[in-house]
Design a protein around this nucleic acid. Structure first.
Lengths: 217, 217
DNA sequence: GTTTGTGAACCACTTCACAGCC
DNA sequence: GGCTGTGAAGTGGTTCACAAAC
């Protein structure tokens, strides 16, 4: 169904998983995958794989499966990975530095072009090859470098200001690791990742398991 | 509706957000919050807040709202945060060390009791006060310390082995930062956080925005 | 008057099941 | 015979809208 250009959010969130699995198969020299096989690798159900991929177009062959190389290309194109997106990180603390050192960045078509921090000891330095600018330079540098994705690794108190600064500089996608709720205009994509939230959700499950054990006695 | 003991997954995932917002209001000395106010702070819709909270019980007062302190207690109880959960981290690289230094850990009722790594230079050391053990010691140490939550910060190649080791040691909740699909038995909760996946999803949105700009010409 | 708690309507996503093509 | 693509049915979650409680 190549006609409709509205891909469900849930499908978009799974495309990177499929892509990774496809790369694994490509590296093994496998020429084609069935939805069954891809589903197994991605840890989902085969019908879901077929419906997801059908949103990109009819790229499979009945009785055969999907051509691995061709499907990799199509998924990458759909995700916008055929072009390079400039990324900037606000906050050069532990997490910011760990992210800057993440090898998967450039490997996957993202260029880390700038970091920002308030600490005078860090400003002017280079972390894993990326220059650290003062926070005040964010609007100018982000605009000049054409930053597409802003990553926020600051304390929660200043996260919203940083988000606003990125938005003002024309950044259209934000990823925050700050433990606070952020808001952004409708046209800006905002994703939040929060360790303490993940732990609390797991705490709920731990408790549920513990209760079941007690009940089972 | 205190009768039903099945809280929707989506609600559980939002409880930590509400909890954080409630703490903010408590610190400001606010005695009660309406669903409207809590919704605004949490960035969701008021009806959703009410339905979510109704799953915990009827803790609100019509015409008044929810008592902040009481609601904090109930949400914490529901999430299992009134008890301490021992946590272990496998992988003492950049990310593992950044997580070990995360102050929110102990502050929120999680005790980081052990780290594991293969690097002989790290084994025997202590990172932010947490001892680093060899990977081989994982089953014994995790079982002995009663680890409830295992965090995986290793390269993807060994992530599944580590997950299996945690599961064998009786760990019932896993959080993985490794960029690979993991599988675990049904009774083990597994959450995955993946920077490169988040970036790829944002890449999709960046591309969509770029396309709209072109169309708009 | 205010605000909760909740059926009912709605919507998005998932899964089934099978026709259609290889 | 094998596997995709997709309508149709099913599921879970969201939002509406209002009666009940303060």
């Amino acid at each position: 169904m190549v006609t409709s250009r509205r891909i469900p959010e849930a499908t978009v969130a799974r495309l990177p998983i499929y892509l990774r699995c496809l790369h694994v198969e490509a590296k093994r020299g496998v020429p084609t995958v069935s939805s069954e096989r891809l589903a197994e690798l991605a840890g989902v159900n085969a019908a879901k794989v077929r419906k997801d991929l059908s949103h990109l177009g009819s790229y499979g062959t009945r009785g055969v499966g999907y051509d691995v190389g061709f499907l990799i290309f199509q998924v990458r194109r759909e995700l916008g990975l055929t072009q390079d997106w400039p990324v900037a990180i606000a906050g050069a603390g532990n997490l910011g530095q760990a992210l800057a050192g993440y090898a998967g960045f450039r490997a996957r078509g993202f260029s880390l072009v700038a970091m920002f921090d308030t600490d005078p000891a860090k400003v002017g330095q280079s972390i894993h090859g990326t220059p650290v600018h003062p926070i005040g330079a964010l609007p100018a540098v982000a605009a000049e470098e054409g930053v597409a994705i802003g990553i926020i690794c600051t304390p929660p108190e200043v996260a919203q200001e940083l988000a606003d600064a990125f938005v003002d500089a024309g950044v259209k996608s934000l990823l925050s690791f700050a433990p606070t709720v952020l808001s952004s205009p409708d046209h800006v994509a905002l994703r939040m990742v929060d360790l303490s939230m993940e732990l609390q959700i797991l705490s709920f499950h731990s408790q549920r398991v513990a209760e079941q054990l007690v009940e089972g006695l």
